[in-house]
Write a protein that binds this DNA or RNA. Structure first.
Lengths: 215, 215, 215, 215
DNA sequence: GATGAATGAGAATTCATTCAT
DNA sequence: CATGAATGAATTCTCATTCAT
């Protein structure tokens, strides 16, 4: 029973990601999500309060997965710059690997005023927390500068990643997002590293490819 | 007639900013905006195609004003770093000076799927264009690095500013946004400058004040 | 404009009586009422707050008409017993003449919890007020007793009339309701005791006819 | 098993009276009634066809109890007037003693269209039957008049009692209902005419107390 | 008999938008 | 140009009821 119940919740979440990505949040019908999950419309409301709750739950659940997966990976790196690079790469590849989820996170989710007004504390704070850990670790190790507030650095990193992914989504997801990793890390680390850019030695990879709107 | 007409258009836009900020985009009633502008509901449709067009027009019009005002100011600076600093300061102070507008731009506007899907080319591209000009100028002058794509740098700058302002809005606009200017510029320029951070000599100003969620 | 507006309100009320009587309050569709009034569904909501408000407005409007019509007639009688007889006759004939309205008042209206909880002060109080005037007048003239509270008498009269009409409605409106007038007046004025109080001299009319469930 | 089963049925009925009185028929949730009876929602449907059946069963069961209890008491009186007085007193005190039941009978029950359309033959007919027996007995004994139809008299008695109790419920059950007994009996037996028919000798008791809306 | 998770029908209502005046 | 009364499309969500366990 437990299992079947958890299973249903997940089926609804998966269906929601697909339908939200395909139709957009407002056009998406709850009945359509239910059908795609193989359930009756009313059943959705046994697991989620309403349509917006469903959208936000998608974000929360997936973000939690991301955060724990990312953290496990990140902590295998001993070098602060590598940790940052690891995060950036996973962030970009996470979305590149799941276009539906990318559309949900970068576009549809923003149409929830509850989300935009940061009425959702969980997921985003969790993610910002992970970034901040990396920042604090880098400072402790002497790899990242300490004169600028850690919060500001955290938001610079998140803001940059978010904007880059959004631009990729908007431009039709046509170019290779992950290939921007090195350039991004270089930009960010050279900014937050105390000395010049040679601390983090990374060759600057190829651009995202043809049509890269970020060029 | 011309004047009165332009006047009405402006009155509607001003009313819209207030009502959108106060009620949020979806709760905002067109009839309420009309009333606040001293007009009948139908009249709004003589000037704007629909409610979303009104929201986006607010963005376009205000952004155009911003861009031309910012550009005039920016171009008075001869030094690339100063130009960047000027932009950052104006961006932050522009929103700090008009909380209603800030709420509109950072929260309500995102609820327009047309905006989020970048169906709006004008305003945002204009603003990104202004940032890019500064970046290109800095590169030409040898103050900003050339190994990383200018587009990426542009998005780093915009993404960071946008995230910082969003965070300020969400946290209740309680701290001083403008006072973050120097730290932000330092972060950005030290990242994008070819050599170490001493190119742009700026003292790191005070933090945003108590309750600054960016710390 | 005024006239057309008033006209629409009336058209809606008339349509509502018909639809409520035909379908019952809950089965009645607002869209059906609108259609029967030759209007769009939304228009109903320009004149009435919601479906229940429509039902209650039917009651209020019609009761006000009844009360002013009844009062005009009643006051032409100089004798208290005649006044009472006049009221009873008009009450019964009012419903007998309009079966749809009878169904609305005796059945559908009771399904509004707002009405049943006496959330509606206007109409019913108005009608009870009219009955009470007759009672007070009769007491002043020495025709009605003073040892029993006027309120109780008022409710005896109203309760009896209401129950008699309800019974008639429920039994299919098959017998002649008005013909019960004289018996009712006699009962009310003289009670069920054996000797006819000859104060109010009225022959006892025929029964309501075949199938009269009140026999 | 039998006993436990009957017990559950009763627990459901008791819970229903409380919930209907507290929430009103429509707002009342079957699951809430079940919970209050210490059972699962589905179990209610082993004992009752549906929610309306539950409401009507409350009425039927309680009315049957009333009728047999009232009849036993009434028949101990040998005098027709005393029988009537006994009925009136028991009717009033029955409701006064159980405010939840009063709310159910006078308000919620009327919201059942099946009840209002007299789709329920049992309980009400039973009660009307009891009243009628008293009327017929009074006629046989020469205490009640024969010129008026017994049915009409029955309905006068019931309508008056019903209206008086309804008014008491609506006004918040604040005054003493039972103390109206004597006045009511006097009114019914002797009418509203001026001279007290001394047939039924009963002192006119005190009014219902302060705030009595029947005054 | 008892359970309670799942069902799915069903319509009131809002409000952006129109267009006759 | 301006009005504002009228329109009508469009869908979430509830909760009584069922039935597999």
């Amino acid at each position: 029973m437990r299992v079947k119940t958890a299973d249903k919740r997940l089926r609804i979440l998966d269906a929601a990601v697909r339908v939200f990505a395909r139709e957009g949040f407002f056009k998406a019908r709850v009945s359509q999500i239910a059908e795609e999950a193989g359930l009756a419309p009313g059943t959705v409301y046994l697991y989620f309060k309403n349509k917006e709750d469903l959208l936000i739950s998608v974000f929360e659940v997936r973000t939690e997965e991301f955060v724990s997966r990312f953290r496990a990976e990140v902590e295998q790196q001993r070098d602060p710059c590598s940790r940052l690079a690891c995060l950036v790469r996973m962030h970009l590849s996470g979305f590149q690997a799941d276009p539906d989820l990318a559309a949900c996170f970068q576009v549809e989710l923003r149409q929830s005023s509850r989300f935009m007004r940061r009425g959702v504390k969980g997921g985003l704070q969790l993610y910002l927390g992970l970034i901040r850990e990396i920042v604090e670790f880098g400072r402790k190790e002497g790899a990242f500068r300490k004169e600028v507030s850690a919060g500001l650095i955290t938001h610079l990193i998140f803001g940059t990643l978010d904007e880059v992914v959004s631009t990729w989504v908007m431009s039709g997801m046509k170019y290779n997002l992950v290939s921007l990793t090195d350039q991004l890390v270089e930009l960010i680390t050279s900014g937050i590293g105390p000395k010049a850019s040679l601390l983090c030695e990374r060759g600057l990879g190829a651009e995202g490819g043809p049509g890269n709107t970020l060029n």
